[in-house]
């Protein structure tokens, strides 16, 4: 059960990250901030768990990274979507919507 939850969470996190990157390249910290700000208490993620997700998606070829200077002048790794990542985002979004739609319909109080 725990594993299932974790998997679902992880899958969700991946989609969220991909979504973040769909507006342009950004580094890990910026992604974390965005996630924290946008979804404040709804989706509570430990910021740390973002990083393994990033590495994993990079390994799967969903995102690519390159070194760039960050706002503070330090070198930071900037992530961007790859073509595969874009496609993954599309299919995952669609299936999430479908899932959410189905669950919503079931949970909607019958008139």
């Amino acid at each position: 059960m725990l594993a299932n939850n974790r998997d679902r969470l992880r899958g969700t996190l991946d989609v969220l990250v991909l979504r973040t990157l769909s507006w342009g390249p950004r580094h890990g910290y910026a992604i974390a901030r965005w996630l924290a700000d946008e979804s404040a208490d709804t989706v509570h993620v430990e910021e740390g768990s973002l990083y393994p997700a990033l590495y994993r998606m990079e390994e799967r070829g969903l995102i690519a990274s390159e070194w760039k200077a960050s706002e503070l002048g330090r070198q930071a790794k900037f992530y961007k979507l790859t073509a595969a990542g874009r496609k993954h985002l599309r299919t995952e979004t669609a299936s999430w919507m479908e899932f959410a739609h189905a669950v919503t319909r079931i949970l909607q109080p019958q008139p």
Binding site: H27, G28, Y29, A32, R33, E47, G48, Y51, Y55, S70, L72, R74, A76, K77
Partner: peptide, 16 residues
């Protein structure tokens, strides 16, 4: 590389 990245995150957050 991993350590740098995590340190960067923590430093940025602390900075903010």
């Amino acid at each position: 590389e991993v350590d740098d990245k995590l340190a960067f995150h923590l430093a940025m957050r602390a900075h903010d």
